[in-house]
Design a binder for these strands. Structure first.
Length: 432
RNA sequence: UCCGCGUUAGCUCAAUGGUAGAGCAUUCGGCUGUUAACCGAAGGGUUGUAGGUUCGAGUCCUACACGCGGAGCCA
């Protein structure tokens, strides 16, 4: 039978008798008293079982119950300032639902290999629960942000016929009699079709990269949200990105502060994430690197170390715009004031978390775009539908993509993005 | 793909080339207020795999496998 009461709601039941269901997070005992820590997915509750208050059978169960066994407990709710949640349960009945035997994840420390091998159980742990709750709140904040601003959700296909940007390595598959198909690396080109139909759209879903990247910032399957807006120029794009990031961070601070505290996050650093964010050009970024003595050649893209050197000067996300066109994608519009530069923007999160947003104003001129496709040696026939967007009522438009896992990792203050998604997919691991 | 580090009990880790150890977990016992509780006891090992050096290898050498960190690439 489904539970009538969850731990998070116990404040309404002080002094009353309740029955709760869940799992044993941990147990302590002191002779005639057992302390059972119940978790139910909404919180943690210490249930106190005194030998004198329960039947011998119930006390026996409380003695034998093991970590992660499922059980139901009935007792009286009381306020307890010493308890983490503020409440405790004076138990007088405990019903074992299923005994857990030799649960592998103990309350002591474990190595990352062991934990990821047991990811299906690791997600029960307190920190993992906190991360997943923050992730969920971020996802909802993302949807709310766009939904409240007149955007329409526009779902792009996951299976695509071509390497849309011609840059990343993609996952390949045989698609019936039509030859090779690929898992999407970005919904952007499709989002552009949406923007010209609906004005402002966003895509939000999983994307795939077969890059052999083995770092704390990479997964082979990750979630990306990509807004695309008709009539927006690069400055409008940056304004939106800035408002968006502020909204996400401040929403999590308001609604998931307890989870951030469980994670040991320095909340004061997140409280500073308020508009306006610093905006510097690529050229200014190069100046900062030179000033710090970095060996950097104008024209190269910034590496991870370069990004950290630049962003460490700022307490807020820093927006770097106008990159050398040569290192950016074919669809980005050139700066009318300098043909070598693309109207692109990357947003680097503070504290060394690196790029969380990449965006640009798109090339809207048919002939220029045709030229770019030739320069990049891309097969024009695959892009005919995309070129149609310039043939029929082309307008200036812009958009960006935000990597969900990197954003969750930054806000939670994590070492590695593998903990930001329930089942991470990485170059050397696709289980469990 | 490249560079570096690692692989010993279920887990986290020790062990000058000379008897394989501890904490946690498990089992048993003790404790009426514990906060990763504590105290006592017990069981638990083909030291990643295959070779080699040596009187003797967890330890040294070679190859391979797997993992971790980083680079490149990328969000």
């Amino acid at each position: 039978m489904k539970p009538e009461i969850y731990i998070k709601d116990l404040g309404n039941y002080v002094g009353k008798e309740v029955t709760l269901q869940g799992w044993l997070y941990n147990k302590r005992s002191s002779g005639k008293v057992k302390f059972l820590i119940l978790r139910d997915g909404t919180g943690y509750l210490q249930c106190v079982v005194f030998k004198g208050n329960v039947s011998p059978e119930v006390f026996e169960i409380s003695d034998k119950i093991t970590q992660e066994s499922s059980f139901a407990v009935t007792g009286k709710v009381k306020e307890e300032p010493r308890a983490p949640g503020g409440y405790e349960l004076d138990a007088f009945d405990v019903k074992l639902i299923s005994l857990s035997r030799d649960y592998p994840i103990t309350p002591k420390e474990h190595g990352i290999e062991f934990l990821i091998d047991h990811r299906h159980l690791w997600v029960r742990s307190k920190k993992q629960v906190a991360i997943l709750k923050v992730r969920h709140r971020i996802v909802k904040a993302i949807r709310d942000f766009f939904d409240e601003r007149g955007f329409t959700l526009f779902d792009p296909p996951i299976i695509t016929p071509n390497a849309s940007e011609g840059t990343s390595t993609l996952f390949e598959m045989e698609y019936f009699d039509l030859g090779k198909a690929y898992l999407t690396q970005s919904g952007q080109l499709y989002a552009e079709a949406g923007a010209l139909a609906l004005g402002k759209v966003y895509t939000f879903g999983p994307t795939f990269r077969a890059e052999k990247s083995k770092t704390r910032r990479h997964l082979t399957e990750f979630w990306m949200v990509e807004p695309e807006m008709a009539f927006y120029d690069l400055d409008d794009d940056m304004d939106l990105a800035e408002e968006f990031i502020e909204y996400i961070v401040q929403t999590v601070l308001a609604d998931r502060r307890a989870e951030l505290e469980i994670l040991g996050r320095d909340i004061s650093k997140l409280e500073k994430i308020k508009r306006p964010f610093p905006r510097i050009s690529y050229d200014e970024g190069v100046e900062i690197l030179k000033k710090k003595g970095a060996d950097f050649t104008w024209g190269d893209d910034f590496g991870g170390a370069d990004e950290t050197l630049i962003s460490e000067d700022f307490e807020k996300p820093v927006m770097i715009h106008r990159y050398p066109a040569a290192v950016k994608a074919f669809y980005m519009k050139r700066d009318p004031e300098n043909d070598k530069l693309a109207l692109a923007v990357d947003v680097l999160a503070p504290e060394g978390y690196g790029e969380i947003i990449g965006g640009s104003q798109r090339e809207d001129d048919l002939d220029v775009l045709l030229e770019r496709i030739k320069e990049h040696n891309l097969p024009q026939e695959y892009f005919e539908w995309y070129l149609d967007l310039r043939r029929y009522g082309s307008v200036p438009h812009s958009g960006f993509g935000l990597g969900l896992e990197r954003t969750v990792g930054w806000i939670c203050g994590l070492e590695h993005v593998r903990e930001t998604i329930p089942f991470p997919r990485m170059i050397y691991r696709n289980t469990p």
